[in-house]
Design a protein around this nucleic acid. Structure first.
Length: 255
DNA sequence: ATGTCGGAATTATTCCGA
C-alpha cells in the first residue's frame, strides 16, 4: 500500500496535473492540502472515475484539505476544534486500517505578523487535539504541509530566527513527535537532504533552494509498516506543459 | 526585479496570500 501527502496549491488549476500523478504513481491513500475550493466545488466524479473516493473539508478561495482513498473512508474529524476561524486545515478519516489525518498548518507569514503567534498557538491546539482524540499505540498517520523546517538539513539556507526556522516553531514540531509520532522520511533517511517545497519565484527549484516542510508522521505501529519513503521531486516539474504545485508529493510504501 | 503562481473582486487589472 502506498500513502502520500501533497499540497497541490489550488485543485481547480491543478486537477489535470494531479490526475497525471495519480495515474503514474498509483497511490492508495492521499492527503491533499490547499484545495482553494468549497466542498460543493470538489470534483468527486472526476476522482471516482479514477477509482478514488474523497473526504473533503474545503472553504472558499483558501486552505482546504481532503483525503483520497481507493477503499472506504470514514471521516472522524473535520477541522481542528477551537481553531475553525483560522481556516479549513485538518481532516481525519479511518482508512486502510489507519487513522489518517491531513493538515495544512498555518504559514505564519513573518515574525512580525499577527499570524506568527497564531501559528504557534495553532500547533499547541493540534498537539492537545491529538492527545485527546488519538492513541499513538494505534496505527496513526498525520501528514501534510507543516510549514516548519525541523532541522538545518531541511533548509537550503539555515536561517536561525527566520520564519519556518525558529526555535519556537521547532519546539512545536518536536512536541508532536514527543507525543508519539516519527517523521518517516527522516527516520528512514537520516542523512538525506531532500526538499518538498521550492518558491515559484527566481528559479528556486533549479537553484536547489528548497525546504522540507511536508511530512508523513507515523505512530510506532504505523511506522513498522513503512518500508520506504520518497519525495517525488519529479512532480515539482512541468508535465505535458502543465504547471506543477510549488510542493512535491511525499510518498511512503507500506507493507 | 519583491523575478511566480492561484484566486477574488471586478471586468484585463489590481490585490492578497504563499
Amino acid at each position: 500500500m502506498r500513502i502520500a501527502t501533497w499540497n497541490v496549491n489550488g485543485l481547480r488549476s491543478r486537477l489535470d496535473f494531479v490526475l497525471h500523478w495519480l495515474r503514474d504513481r498509483q497511490p492508495d491513500v492521499v492527503g491533499l492540502q490547499e484545495l482553494k475550493l468549497t466542498d460543493e466545488q470538489f470534483p468527486h466524479e472526476v476522482f471516482e472515475a479514477e477509482g478514488y473516493r474523497a473526504a473533503v473539508y474545503g472553504q472558499k478561495a483558501w486552505n482546504g484539505v481532503a483525503i483520497l482513498s481507493r477503499d472506504e473512508v470514514e471521516v472522524t474529524q473535520r477541522g481542528l476544534p477551537g481553531e475553525e476561524e483560522f481556516g479549513s486545515r485538518l481532516i481525519t478519516a479511518k482508512v486502510a486500517g489507519l487513522s489518517f489525518t491531513t493538515v495544512y498548518c498555518p504559514n505564519g507569514k513573518h515574525l512580525g505578523h499577527d499570524d506568527y503567534p497564531r501559528k504557534l498557538s495553532w500547533f499547541d491546539t493540534l498537539a492537545n487535539h491529538l492527545r485527546a482524540a488519538h492513541d499513538p499505540s494505534q496505527p496513526v498517520v498525520v501528514g501534510g504541509d507543516f510549514n516548519i523546517c525541523p532541522a538545518p538539513i531541511d533548509s537550503w539556507r539555515e536561517a536561525p530566527g527566520e520564519i519556518f526556522h525558529t526555535a519556537e516553531e521547532r519546539q512545536r514540531f518536536s512536541a508532536l513527535l514527543d507525543w508519539g509520532l516519527v517523521d518517516a522520511f527522516r527516520h528512514l533517511q537520516p542523512q538525506t537532504q531532500a526538499f518538498s517545497w521550492w518558491d515559484y519565484r527566481g528559479g528556486a527549484f533549479h537553484k536547489k533552494q528548497g525546504l522540507r516542510i511536508d511530512f508523513l508522521l507515523a505512530s510506532a505501529p504505523a511506522l513498522e509498516r513503512i518500508q520506504s519513503t520518497e519525495i517525488d521531486r519529479d512532480y515539482r516539474k512541468k508535465k505535458d506543459g502543465l504547471t506543477p504545485s510549488d510542493h512535491a508529493p511525499v510518498i511512503a510504501e507500506l507493507g
